[in-house]
Simulated scan of single mutants.
Amino acid sequence: MIVAEHFGFVVGIDTHAKTHTLAIIDTPTGGEMANETFPATTTGGNRALSWILRCTGASAEQVLLSMEGTGWYGAKLRQQASDAGFQVTEAPVPNQRLGRYEGKSDSIDATRAARTALSIPTNRLREPRSRKDHMALRILSNARRTMVRERTAAINALTALLRIVDLALMPECR
């Protein structure tokens, strides 16, 4: 069963630091019902979730949220939506081989996030990354990057020292 057969509506969400843009797609027709931008705050998230329910007239279980940035800018909204009973999935990555689409805006990105999810089998939906796991990996990656940078700097300093200063390590011939 694909998403369009299982859910009545798919909401694409393009997340940013200050705002989140949502686009509601009616799955039977594939048509866009509404498109709106909300502040990326707890209050803005509550307003966005209420807006979804009001526009669709459906229960949270009948709506799939296809969200970009579930582990970063959209983490707070993802948690609010999950707590409210919505199923949230990581938005599919656009196919880069098809080239860049015409135009670029938050509204277009939100609509694309919803429409690309319509044909995905429900058992293949991507679970949003856990915030704790995501943060732990980010910390480990940054620590490794820092250690590599420091190691390289130490090697370069020692190499420069050996080239500049005669340390008399080799015995002189007499």
Rank of each mutant, 00 (worst) to 15 (best):
V63E: 00
L64R: 02
S66F: 02
S66A: 15
E68C: 03
E68R: 05
G69D: 05
G69A: 07
G69F: 00
T70N: 00
W72H: 06
Y73M: 00
Y73C: 06
G74C: 01
A75M: 03
A75D: 04
A75F: 03
K76S: 07
K76V: 05
K76W: 01
L77E: 00
R78I: 00
R78D: 04
Q79Y: 06
Q80D: 05
A81I: 02
A81T: 00
A81N: 00
S82T: 11
S82E: 13
D83H: 11
A84H: 04
G85A: 12
G85Q: 11
F86Y: 12
Q87P: 00
Q87D: 07
Q87G: 05
V88M: 03
E90M: 09
E90I: 02
E90F: 02
P92G: 03
V93C: 06
P94N: 03
N95W: 06
N95D: 15
N95L: 12
R97W: 09
R97I: 10
R97F: 12
L98W: 08
G99C: 08
R100D: 12
R100N: 11
R100E: 10
E102M: 08
E102W: 08
G103K: 06
K104D: 13
K104L: 13
K104Y: 10
K104C: 11
D106C: 07
D106P: 07
S107R: 13
I108V: 11
I108M: 13
D109H: 06
T111Q: 05
R112G: 05
A113P: 01
A114M: 06
A114T: 01
R115I: 03
R115T: 02
A117Q: 00
L118M: 12
I120M: 02
I120G: 00
I120W: 03
I120A: 02
P121S: 14
P121F: 06
T122G: 13
T122I: 14
T122V: 15
T122N: 09
R124H: 15
R124Q: 15
L125R: 06
L125C: 11
L125G: 07
R126C: 09
R126K: 15
R126H: 08
E127H: 11
E127R: 15
E127V: 15
P128T: 08
R129M: 11
R129D: 06
R129Q: 14
R131P: 05
K132R: 14
K132P: 03
K132D: 15
K132Q: 14
D133E: 14
D133F: 14
H134R: 12
H134C: 13
M135F: 14
A136C: 09
L137Q: 13
L137G: 13
R138K: 13
I139N: 07
I139Q: 08
I139K: 12
I139R: 10
S141M: 08
S141R: 15
N142C: 06
N142V: 05
A143C: 11
R144N: 11
T146N: 10
M147I: 07
M147T: 10
